[in-house]
């Protein structure tokens, strides 16, 4: 048993947020913590890694001590309206009307607010019920969309002072700023664009949203297999023609890719002022939970 914690995984599209989310779930569930994985974007990816046909709006088990759920903005908004309008017939008529969609869109951040209050319901169930999970891992939207989502309690909570949504936004805001309960993982891969974006996103999350940050995560890092001196050796072997050229080429690719990645890892460290956590590249073409153990082991060191 442990007090619940919220782990938020974010970063630019294509850096492997879903893989990192799954690997965190693998690590925490195997450490004995009941874990819920929450998908918010790219429907189908998490289900694919978890080897289930799809994720539903209700949490469902996907492994030992491991559950998963899809958190959808439209559905969250619908359940929020249903909580305001108890008559199902009326709430459905309201949700189906164009006008309501326009009105809803006119309220800044209402869909995000509805998503966060659903998240809060999982973190802090109503009444005397105990939380069903020790860890909730949020596979958050890509960079450009995660800051608005996470800053909703601030932009909307300030004016939403009353009512059920106001209350849950205030509580969510406390969650999002509490270093004892929440940690955001900004994921990058060792490439220039991803590093630049991760550094920018961390600055926004830290200074504007004020979410406690985990060390920067460098995903999909190639292994170091050679010493610097090996390059010369491989080149001379290639010149001598003593070994299959393609093998030499494979070795040189690793060497040079590692060299290129190292410069981006250094830049990530410089730009964030923190030592990145390096997660190993998964070569296996089948990305699935039980193949993510090396990734899970690497990230376990920085999990709260």
């Amino acid at each position: 048993m442990s007090d619940p914690r919220l782990l938020i995984v974010t970063g630019k599209g294509g850096v492997g947020k879903t893989t990192v989310t799954a690997a965190i779930g693998r690590a925490t569930s195997r450490a004995g913590l009941r874990t819920l994985l929450v998908e918010t974007a790219s429907p189908g990816r998490l289900a694919n890694v978890l080897r289930v046909p799809s994720l539903e709006a209700e949490p469902r088990p996907v492994g030992e001590r491991l559950d998963a759920v899809a958190l959808d903005a439209d559905r969250a908004l619908a359940s929020f309206v249903q909580s305001l309008v108890p008559l199902r017939l009326l709430s459905n008529a309201l949700l189906a009307s164009d006008t309501f969609r326009i009105v809803a869109a006119a309220v800044p951040g209402i869909a995000e607010a509805a998503m966060l209050s659903q998240l809060l319901a999982w973190l802090e169930p109503r009444g005397l019920r105990r939380p069903a999970w020790d860890r909730i891992v949020l596979d958050a939207p890509a960079s450009g969309h995660s800051a608005p989502l996470l800053s909703t309690p601030e932009t909307l909570g300030g004016i939403a002072s009353v009512g059920p949504l106001g209350t849950s936004l205030r509580r969510m805001s406390e969650w999002l700023r509490d270093p004892a309960r929440t940690r955001a993982f900004v994921v990058a891969i060792p490439e220039a664009w991803a590093v630049a974006e991760a550094a920018e996103l961390r600055a926004v999350l830290r200074d504007e949203v004020r979410v406690p940050l985990a060390p920067p995560i460098a995903n999909a890092v190639f292994p170091r297999r050679f010493a610097a001196a090996d390059e010369e050796r491989l080149l001379s072997e290639r010149a001598a023609g003593s070994v299959d050229d393609r093998l030499i080429a494979a070795g040189l690719y690793f060497l040079r890719r590692r060299g290129d990645e190292k410069s981006h890892l250094r830049e990530l460290r410089r730009a964030t002022g923190e030592i990145p956590v390096e997660l190993p590249f998964v070569f296996d073409p089948d990305v699935r939970l039980d193949r993510l153990d090396p990734v899970a082991a690497a990230i376990a060191e920085v999990l709260p």
Binding site: L84, V103, A106, V107, P108, I110, L156, I159, A160, S161, V162, G163, L165, G166
Partner: peptide, 8 residues
């Protein structure tokens, strides 16, 4: 409720 939330 929406108006209260937004202050608009």
């Amino acid at each position: 409720a929406l108006e209260r939330m937004t202050g608009l």
